[in-house]
């Protein structure tokens, strides 16, 4: 389970996150929905121990991310793009990642197969399309067979078939008892895949709970979103 409590982040005088609190439960897909620059990535970066919060905590299974010795075996993450050096091959990149967490090399072939990059061979990542980079990012996330997936805008750059594939993957992970937290600014995507919703705007959580409850009273998720975030709600 992911628990975010009272998370606040200030850069100089600018408040990026303000008392952000929510949970992501096992067996469910939790979507973190908000416009660009609402604080989604900032929250996920703190959750993954990349950035430090000004106040508050972000825990996975009750522990801060930085306390894990082999974090990739518990949490798989993807923060936009491949997260790999452009001169590496997909396999070369995944092999050092695997080695850093004591993950057997056979997993590299397995995840490459899983995300559809098994045939990329010696092609360098710099030559990958956006969609392929996204798939590599996902392969990295899946490498350690983690129970928790944290995905920042996973559908970015994927073609329609890729989006559908990603949706299936995320649903399967939750169905198998895993925890999924994914961020998105695409409401159509979220409506298809999420069980729970956390809506964030201008660094504050404006709504949270099961998708059906949040959209109750609105014709569509889109209507609910604009009403809740108070952004660009042209009707």
């Amino acid at each position: 389970m992911i628990s975010i409590d009272g998370l606040t982040k200030r850069h100089g005088g600018r408040t990026v996150l303000s008392n952000v609190t929510f949970r992501a439960e096992p067996g469910r897909v939790t979507a973190f929905l908000g416009p660009n620059a609402a604080g989604k990535s900032s929250t996920l970066r703190i959750l993954l121990g990349l950035d430090r919060p000004t106040a508050g905590t972000a825990l996975v299974g009750g522990r801060p991310y930085r306390s894990f010795r082999e974090p990739l075996r518990t949490v798989g993450s993807m923060l936009g793009g491949s997260g790999a050096h452009r001169s590496h091959t997909a396999r070369g990149h995944l092999r050092w990642v695997a080695r850093s967490n004591g993950i057997p090399d056979r997993r590299v072939s397995e995840v490459l197969e899983r995300v559809g990059l098994a045939d990329t061979g010696r092609t360098r990542i710099g030559r990958f399309s956006l969609g392929m980079q996204q798939r590599l990012g996902l392969a990295t996330a899946l490498l350690g067979e983690p129970a928790v997936l944290v995905l920042d805008e996973p559908a970015n750059g994927l073609d329609p078939e890729g989006v559908r594939w990603m949706r299936g993957l995320v649903r399967d992970h939750a169905a198998a008892g895993g925890t999924v937290l994914l961020s998105s600014h695409l409401m159509s995507e979220v409506a298809e895949v999420a069980d729970d919703l956390v809506v964030i705007a201008a660094g504050r959580v404006v709504a949270g709970g099961p998708l059906t409850r949040i959209t109750a009273g609105y014709a569509t998720l889109e209507d609910a979103f604009f009403a809740l975030t108070g952004t660009g709600g042209v009707r």
Partner: peptide, 12 residues
């Protein structure tokens, strides 16, 4: 490509 995010996610 900001590999640092992958590196520090793997080894915090």
């Amino acid at each position: 490509d900001r590999r640092i995010t992958t590196s520090l996610a793997a080894v915090p």
